[in-house]
Design a binder for these strands. Structure first.
Length: 533
RNA sequence: GGGCCUGUAGCUUAGUCAGGUAGAGCGAUGGACUCUUAAUCCAUCGGCCGCGGGUUCGAACCCCGUCAGGCCCGCCA
């Protein structure tokens, strides 16, 4: 059974109506790691609906969380905002400086700034969750009940956290973080509590009051999370392994939720995504690939497949090079399979059956809409990468594909893919081994590997090219003439050509590539090869 | 220190919850197509399932131990 169906089955035991929650702090640029959170939730929601449940996906935007530090992409003036809530401070402009104008005129906050592009990527990828800005929930008093219960019984909460997490809380710990007069959550000591007011003093001895029912402050994370499970009626939530460890915030959350008087959601812990060879993704270190950037290179279905086809507890190494090629080709293979036919075979073992069913589910979840049918384009990623490199004009690619019988008409899926393919080829991520390179000078090693017959062809090829008409057909003809005049098989001829022009044993069809190269350079290269053997 | 996750073919992995001959894909190798769109098709090779013990008629799977990697017990998807 696919992992999303396993969770859906557990939800079935729990009831009919479900709210599946995801949540991210908009402290910096979103990356594909965050995509796993949302897509995991989206796939659970789809699986739940498939098994007949009502399921809604929500995205809690944790914009009540404070700014932790001045990240490298921020101007140092953000120093003043440390401890301030992300939804209540201005967004950085293109120089990293606070954009006060937009903040005051439009209310455009730091959190909005980073959230917006992510939402656009989500839309492309087929996910449109209901947004729940957490700061708004505080200001609307949604946290009031839980905050009251916690502040009325600080010792009970303290006991849970200390026992479950095994860490000791400071003696002045209080289950409410008040905002000071400037809007910071940092550095305050709670001095008293009389519902709904919490009194505090800051480092400089200033005192003030905070109303816990109006969001003049926030619950610490370990309470904030279980509290919102309650009033948002969350029944299921996937979260990263950081929250999932024993003694982590889910473990304390389960008990705190019970104390608040509601059931904790069905959990699903997922592993992190790292960037191949570069370690975990992190917004602050700049070691990221954004969802937008990823979508410029590959279609959304393929990004979805990455998540759908990996079990949540498997770490994913995102590889923007050959890994993407393999992933894309895997998608094509899946799309061209006939699963129903495969499953109708009665002699399948239980394992084989499970494997086919999971592949079918993964492909279904890769579609950007749940009703869409996967269609194979019958053109592999590799093939398209090749054509895109040798043919600058899209029409030439379509006519080549039609000629070879791969397609009958160019369609929107293919032209969309070609557009992304060209972006990928132009980017730093395109793998070297996929790049077609015509040599600048003879490659002695490759030429040395040729046998005598092949070596003898080199001067003949060089000569024929001199006289060839410089089109794909003309060059093709020159190759044929060369082979004929030496009475050699075409196979040897091509073997010699690849050694001459690409320094390899095999390669893509040469004539159209050479036709797109400068004639003199190719002829000079051929002549140098002839001279060197 | 306490805990969680991961370890299966060269690579990516399925299978572990419900024990019953270890399955794929990529790569590699060989072949076919009167020869090349790195195509396609066919075949082959490749596994002490991290290691040691235990339970069992039978263990990749359950139990105990151990090694390695990652992570958590302030904050983080």
């Amino acid at each position: 059974m696919h992992w999303s169906d396993v969770i859906a089955q557990r939800l079935t035991e729990r009831g009919n109506d479900h709210i599946i929650a995801t949540g991210i702090t908009p402290s910096g640029e979103f990356h594909i790691g965050h995509l796993r959170e949302i897509l995991t939730g989206d796939m659970i929601a789809r699986a739940a609906r498939r098994s007949g449940l009502n399921a809604e996906l929500v995205f809690v935007v944790d914009n009540a969380d404070p700014l932790r530090k001045v990240y490298p992409f921020l101007d140092k003036s953000y120093e003043d905002f440390i401890g301030h809530q992300l939804g209540s401070i201005p967004a950085p402009d293109k120089d990293g400086k606070p954009d006060w104008r937009r903040f005051e005129e439009e209310g455009w906050s730091y959190g909005d700034h980073f959230l917006q592009p992510f939402l656009e990527a989500l839309k492309q990828i087929g996910v449109e969750p209901r947004l729940i800005p957490n700061l708004t929930s505080y200001r609307e008093g949604k946290f009031a009940d839980s905050a009251k219960k916690a502040c009325d019984n600080p010792d009970a909460i303290r006991e849970i956290i200390e026992r479950v997490s095994g860490r000791e809380l400071p003696s002045n710990w209080f289950p409410w973080q008040p905002l000071d007069s400037k809007g910071s959550l940092d550095g305050l000591d709670v001095t008293g509590y009389n519902y709904p007011m919490v009194t505090w003093t800051d480092k400089d001895g200033n005192t003030g009051e905070s109303n816990i029912s109006k969001g003049e402050g926030k619950l610490p994370w370990r309470l904030d999370w279980p509290a919102k499970w309650g009033f948002n009626h969350i029944t299921c939530e996937p979260f990263g392994k950081d929250h999932g460890a024993a003694g982590g915030s889910y473990a304390t959350g389960v008990e705190i939720a019970a104390f608040f008087g509601h059931e904790p959601p069905q959990s699903l812990v997922y592993e992190w995504i790292s960037l191949r060879g570069k370690g975990a993704m992190s917004s602050s270190s700049g070691n990221t690939v954004g969802p937008i950037e990823a979508l410029r290179l590959v279609p959304p279905e393929i990004l979805r497949l990455l998540i759908a086809n990996s079990k949540p507890n498997k770490a994913i190494e995102f590889d923007t090079g050959m890994g993407l090629v393999n992933l894309a080709d895997q998608y094509e293979r899946l799309a061209s399979r006939n699963f129903d036919e495969e499953l109708s075979n009665d002699s399948l073992s239980r394992r084989q059956r499970v494997q086919i069913e999971d592949a079918q589910a993964a492909l279904r979840l890769s579609m950007t809409t749940s009703t869409q049918e996967a269609k194979a384009t019958s053109v592999s990623f590799r093939h398209l990468a090749l054509l895109a490199q040798i043919k600058p004009k899209d029409e030439d690619i379509w006519s080549s594909l039609i000629e070879s019988g791969a397609i009958t008409n160019p369609n929107s899926v293919l032209s969309d893919r070609l557009e992304r393919m060209r972006a990928w080829i132009d980017s730093e991520h395109f793998p070297e081994e996929m790049r077609i390179m015509i040599l600048n000078e003879p490659d002695a090693a490759s030429l040395g590997e040729l046998d005598e017959e092949q070596r003898n062809l080199i001067p003949i090829i060089a000569g024929e090219l001199q006289n060839a008409q410089w089109t794909a057909e003309g060059i093709s003809l020159a190759f044929k003439n060369a082979a004929n005049s030496a009475d050699a098989p075409m196979r040897s001829m091509y073997r010699a050509c690849y050694a001459m022009f690409m320094g390899s044993e095999r390669g893509p069809r040469l004539a159209p590539i050479l036709a797109n190269c400068i004639r003199d350079e190719v002829c000079n290269l051929a002549q140098s090869c002839a001279d060197s053997v």
